[in-house]
Design a protein around this nucleic acid. Structure first.
Lengths: 222, 222
DNA sequence: GGGAAATTCAATAGTTCTCTTGAATATCAC
DNA sequence: GTGATATTCAAGAGAACTATTGAATTTCCC
């Protein structure tokens, strides 16, 4: 293929990591994989695609070196090759937020009206954690909590929240968080908690951003 | 087009900034634009493409919001919309360096053998600048030096270097730099200076990386 | 207004990407 | 081995991307 010069071939290769992310479905995949490894079937469900199509996208990511896979019995688990890939995804996302026209509208279309939901920034939560007067609630699936969470957070996956409302101390001030700024689990949690005895707000972004900012986390031993 | 759901449309838009960079020629364009604004014709020459093709790539970048343009008489100048775009390009490049297979070979093919060239890291140069015992030489085109350079550096564009060797103090220790890790100007300068009375090394990367690391720079007043 | 220079537009052919479908493969449990 | 499950492979249709070519447009200068 490189019947063009050495410089062109080099820059083609440098652009390879962008090509890998240059597709909405693959962006969704990386966004999930940032939370930890997943099987093909789980990923297919997350991005609402057929298993065959998901598998093809994963192999595209594999070829570009951005993800790795391991087999466990009949399942194959994919994971990011390094935290650098998550950094790239977030930088890319931030750039799109800043520069891509129409993005706010699309975000609003997907997320619905967030204006009535109380929210809190990373820095605010950090300060309140120091004061110790807040319950931090991780509403992601159990496995993602296990792979790493905000230090001191408790885990109640969003799908269990309704039946486990009793686990939250009466009158507590709750801050719920999930996968990131475009994840709706924390929104749902705050909506569900409004009207109960607890006060609830959502963290403006999720665990990966918290970890990237080098704020205190708990991770499983290697 | 979005006959698919709101989530898919949102992630398609988030992937838009990656699509803009998902092409070797556009990556080259951004790599040049990081150094400052350029006209279409200049850019076409830099990336060794026809003007028409270059124009089309620039308009793709324009549509994605990553670059801006302004007209000045019959020329149109393109520039990056914000420093964030340069950050994205460097993050993307770093990810490719880390993960894309075969990249080292392609870099070697383009850059040739660098093993005989003395080189120095950012941190080393920073320390030596404090001691004041080094001549920092910016070998990029004059306009790029004017748009911003390492504080204290002198400008001798690579194409003028041979005729301006006399501008460099006899017996000086020179560190040459240019656009970045894949720019060959500094390599050429070091090769040209070997065999003269001065000692020469190249900075391992270029001005954009120096500036991103918040090391001292001189920029023109707004 | 007419000519020149810089850039964009429009049409096209070849390539790559994306999703779909159905078959093939690998591993496990029995 | 046989069947079940998870994943990949293979083929194909339609869309998007890329480079090329030549014409059209914009602005300047006279």
């Amino acid at each position: 293929m490189p019947n063009h010069g050495a410089k062109a071939a080099l820059y083609d290769a440098l652009a390879e990591s962008a090509k890998a992310l240059a597709n909405g479905r693959r962006a969704e995949l990386v966004d999930v994989l940032v939370q930890g490894e997943r099987s093909v079937e789980e990923l297919a469900q997350e991005i609402d695609q057929t298993v065959a199509n998901t598998s093809q996208h994963l192999q595209r990511l594999l070829r570009s070196g951005l993800v790795e896979s391991r087999r466990e019995g009949t399942r194959i688990y994919y994971s990011l090759s390094s935290p650098l890939v998550g950094d790239l995804w977030r930088t890319m996302r931030r750039t799109a937020e800043e520069h891509v026209a129409g993005l706010e509208q699309l975000a609003a279309d997907y997320l619905g009206d967030r204006s009535k939901l109380r929210s809190i920034t990373r820095d605010d939560l950090r300060a309140r954690l120091r004061d110790g007067d807040v319950v931090v609630l991780d509403v992601r699936p159990e496995a993602e909590y296990a792979a790493g969470h905000i230090r001191g957070a408790i885990s109640i996956p969003i799908h269990d929240l309704r039946s486990r409302l009793g686990d939250i101390p009466d009158g507590a001030e709750v801050v719920a968080y999930c996968r990131g700024p475009y994840c709706v689990y924390a929104d749902d949690a705050v909506r569900m908690l409004s009207g109960t005895s607890v006060t609830a707000a959502r963290l403006e972004d999720g665990f990966p951003e918290w970890a990237e900012a080098r704020l205190p986390v708990t991770r499983p031993p290697e």
